[in-house]
């Protein structure tokens, strides 16, 4: 583990100016459960120079239930979100997602903003000692061309919706699908932006989000769902704890009787960014949510998926998961 500098910021302004000073070579540290791992493993060819601790900034933690909107401070621990009564009742998908992030210990440390901004888990990218200097890491030496080692390697956990600039890594966040389905917005030091819009365009694969290196997430805002809507989340993984998703999915469905009035679905761990299956959403709206309908929506959700040699199962899984989540929404009432 290489050396880095570490600063405790006492205000957002101080944090922002520290980040700006390092011109992209400094990172925010909140819960630290992701970034400390990447530092320990020395995954990057050129490590971060500095970490800016924002836990020393007052006021960034806590859940406030305002008029028609839930405000979750950036540093709110996932465990607190999972156990918050309001979240559990009105924003069930988020409570369920927060509840299954990693382990209880990690959830006691890890924050909502950290979970949103976390790095990929691609096992080539994250392999210790930068064993795989891949396209995602950039910084090619002169004459060196970078590749994605997953493309002809062990890609069982990789993208089913193709590469982005050759990179096949996926976004592993548990909470993002729930936040997107719930229509959440991020308030940062620079702007207010919908969670679904924080992901880079497809020509910038080395970034998880478009949040600038000197930009800090302050708060997550979620509009209160319709009283007639229900939400659910599920993650498929090998173990029932610890694991990142092979595929995960959240949905929020607003019902009028049996009929779907409005519906938002979001899959994750299937593409470099969360995947909103618009076709599936469209076909559900205005129809009763039968088991068959849910299965059809599952089929539609993976429309256009192109498997890699080792991961066609993820397509089947995503299909099945969408169906399962939709039925869970229906039954949640």
């Amino acid at each position: 583990m290489r050396r880095f500098k570490h600063f405790d910021a006492s205000s957002l302004d101080e944090a922002v100016s520290l980040l700006a000073r390092f011109e992209g070579r400094a990172k925010v540290i909140a819960g630290g459960t992701d970034i400390v791992g990447t530092l320990k493993d020395s995954v990057l060819p050129e490590p971060y120079e500095a970490l800016v601790n924002i836990k020393t900034i007052p006021g960034l933690e806590g859940i406030r239930n305002g008029a028609g909107v839930l405000k979750i401070g950036a540093l709110t621990r996932l465990e607190d979100i999972a156990h918050n009564e309001t979240v559990q009742t009105k924003y069930a998908a988020l409570a369920q997602a927060a509840r299954v992030v990693a382990t209880p210990h990690i959830r006691e440390m890890g924050t909502i903003a950290g979970n949103i901004c976390q790095n990929t888990r691609c096992w080539y990218y994250r392999c210790a000692h930068n064993r795989f200097h891949c396209v995602r890491k950039g910084h090619a030496a002169p004459g060196q061309s970078l590749e994605c080692f997953a493309s002809d390697g062990d890609n069982r956990y990789h993208s089913i919706f193709g590469d982005v600039k050759d990179c096949l890594a996926v976004n592993p966040s548990d909470t993002i699908p729930a936040l997107i389905a719930l229509g959440a917005t991020l308030k940062t030091t620079k702007r207010s932006i919908a969670v679904k819009d924080i992901f880079p365009p497809s020509d910038e694969p080395t970034k998880m989000t478009i949040i600038d290196s000197d930009e800090i997430v302050i708060e997550v805002e979620i509009p209160e769902p319709q009283a007639s809507s229900r939400s659910a989340y599920h993650k498929v993984a090998i173990r029932k704890s610890i694991d990142f998703p092979i595929v995960n999915c959240a949905a929020v469905v607003d019902f009028e009787g049996d009929v779907v009035k409005d519906c938002h679905i979001c899959l994750n761990a299937v593409h470099y960014k969360p995947y909103v299956p618009e076709r599936a959403e469209a076909l559900l709206e205005g129809e009763p949510l039968t088991d068959e309908q849910a299965a059809t929506a599952g089929e539609a959700a993976v429309w256009g998926a192109k498997p890699l040699p080792m991961n066609s199962y993820k397509i089947t899984m995503a299909k099945g998961l969408v169906k399962k989540i939709l039925i869970a929404c229906r039954e949640a009432g």
Partner: peptide
């Protein structure tokens, strides 16, 4: 799991 191409352990 080993990377089939390089033999590097992925787990």
């Amino acid at each position: 799991v080993f990377d089939p191409k390089t033999g590097v352990k992925l787990t």
